[in-house]
């Protein structure tokens, strides 16, 4: 019963913050809404018995990536130009109709699929130990490749953003 209540609260929060990201004119307020969305998502991961991923989501996404975003915005001194296309183009109705149709299409496809009936409450979550064993045995090669990728990103970021 609690799972349902928490799911509805967190999903409404998540969708509300996501709409806030897209509607705000000011990028910094958008970033704050995105952080709220990520924290709500972390709560949803906890609801799905994935505690490790919830913590990783907050540490990496909300705690590092979004801080990087806010840093860049503070360093760049954006005079937010009028988002002319978004606010003042006519007609406004077709874009909302198209997006509504897109959502309707996705939802119909999801509801029409006969997913095998799982019994959610008896489903075990995965402890950190199980995830770690899988990560270091079956997926050891992608794991090492990811560390190489991070090194490339580090070097690339420094090279691109350096002042000449």
């Amino acid at each position: 019963m609690w799972h349902n209540i928490i799911f509805w609260i967190l999903s409404i929060l998540c969708v509300g913050c996501a709409l806030g990201v897209v509607w705000q004119r000011n990028p910094v307020v958008s970033a704050v809404f995105l952080v709220g969305s990520f924290v709500a998502l972390a709560g949803l991961y906890l609801n799905l018995n994935a505690p490790f991923l919830a913590a990783i989501q907050i540490i990496i996404y909300a705690g590092a990536i979004m801080v990087l975003f806010v840093f860049v915005m503070m360093l760049l001194d954006l005079h937010h130009p009028l988002d002319l296309y978004f606010r003042f183009t006519k007609p406004k109705l077709p874009k909302y109709i198209v997006l509504g149709l897109f959502i309707w299409l996705l939802c119909t496809l999801i509801l029409a699929t006969a997913f095998p009936l799982a019994i959610p409450d008896k489903a075990q979550g995965f402890t950190v130990a199980q995830v770690a064993i899988l990560l270091f045995s079956k997926y050891a090669f992608p794991f090492e490749l990811t560390s190489l990728l991070l090194l490339i990103a580090l070097v690339g970021g420094v090279v691109l953003a350096k002042k000449k």
Binding site: Y61, A64, L68, L149, L150, A153, G157, V158, A161
Partner: peptide, 17 residues
Amino acid sequence: ITVAAVEAAVGLAIIIS
């Protein structure tokens, strides 16, 4: 998540330049 972090870092560096 890791790849998204990488992409965010490089993308923001591009935006800065």
